[in-house]
């Protein structure tokens, strides 16, 4: 059962490791139907790892995850396949196939998941290219597109199946402010026109504040806070403040752990002078 009927994602006490290293340390998070949830955090905060888990691309250590009401640990292969059809992903670098045209890239999910008539698929991809303002560019190869256009093409592919949930990994990264702002507008349009629930990972503050209904602030694998834009902006939490104001962290360095990381040599506490 969903905790709340309008939650499309429910994550509870998610713990993940890469090797021995704990990346997410008990993350609990809900995403509501039709909202834009921005996941923010510095480098190494675990935000991209969290996104990959939400996309069911990684194996967790413990915790539970429900996507569109389904516990992803208890899905048959068929159910998992059906669930994936309702999820769109716009990867950070676009992840377009360079040997294929823009149109072929956008059509790929339709080929993979549907038996639609060729004409229907062609009209669908052209409509989606119009939505992302790439109408008429379907015959170009990715190498013939600018960085912003590649991101737009990736968005067209991500939404071609009219997903219920759209995941976007750093949509504004590497783009000039004008192009980045236009992508933000596109994300808002998709929420409003297609009623999508959208999860965006970004470290771009301006973009986060423009598009977010709620923001999750991650720090070192923990959630510092979840709140509206105003709640995050007015937070009195020191780490949130530092992140928003780009203040370098005044860490309490664990010297033993740091030296062990540098040297690979563990020193037992009793031997230290």
């Amino acid at each position: 059962m969903n905790k709340h009927a309008n939650n499309v994602i429910e994550v509870e006490d998610l713990v993940t490791h890469y090797g021995d290293r704990e990346i997410l340390k008990g993350v609990t998070l809900d995403v509501h139907d039709g909202e834009i949830m921005v996941i923010m955090g510095g480098s190494g905060s675990g935000k991209s790892t969290l996104l990959r888990h939400l996309m069911a691309l990684e194996t967790k250590t413990s915790g539970t995850m429900r996507i569109l009401g389904q516990d992803i640990d208890n899905l048959t292969q068929r159910d998992f396949f059906d669930l994936r059809k309702k999820i769109g992903v716009a990867f950070q670098g676009g992840a377009l196939f360079s040997s294929m045209t823009v149109g072929e890239n956008v059509m790929l999910p339709l080929y993979e998941h549907t038996d639609l008539d060729q004409m229907t698929m062609e009209i669908m991809i052209r409509m989606k290219l119009e939505v992302v303002e790439l109408g008429g560019f379907e015959d170009l190869k990715p190498s013939e597109l600018s960085g912003g256009m590649i991101k737009r093409a990736a968005f067209a592919r991500a939404i071609v199946m009219d997903p219920k949930i759209l995941f976007c990994d750093e949509p504004s990264a590497g783009l000039d402010p004008v192009v980045a702002s236009a992508l933000d507008d596109l994300i808002l349009l998709l929420r409003d026109a297609m009623q999508m629930s959208i999860v965006v990972v970004t470290h771009e503050l301006e973009s986060a504040f423009k598009i977010a209904d709620r923001i999750t602030v991650l720090d070192k694998g923990h959630i510092l806070m979840v709140g509206t834009v105003d709640e995050v902006k007015n937070s009195t939490n020191e780490r949130v403040y530092n992140l928003l104001n780009r203040v370098p962290e005044d860490e309490n360095m664990d010297m033993d752990e740091y030296l062990q990381r540098l040297t690979g040599v563990e020193v037992k506490e009793e031997t230290i002078l």
Binding site: T114, L116, T120, M121, I123, M124, M127, K128, V160, D162
Partner: peptide, 11 residues
Amino acid sequence: IDSSGVASLVE
């Protein structure tokens, strides 16, 4: 109505 339905209307 999803995009495939709209595409059918367009065609």
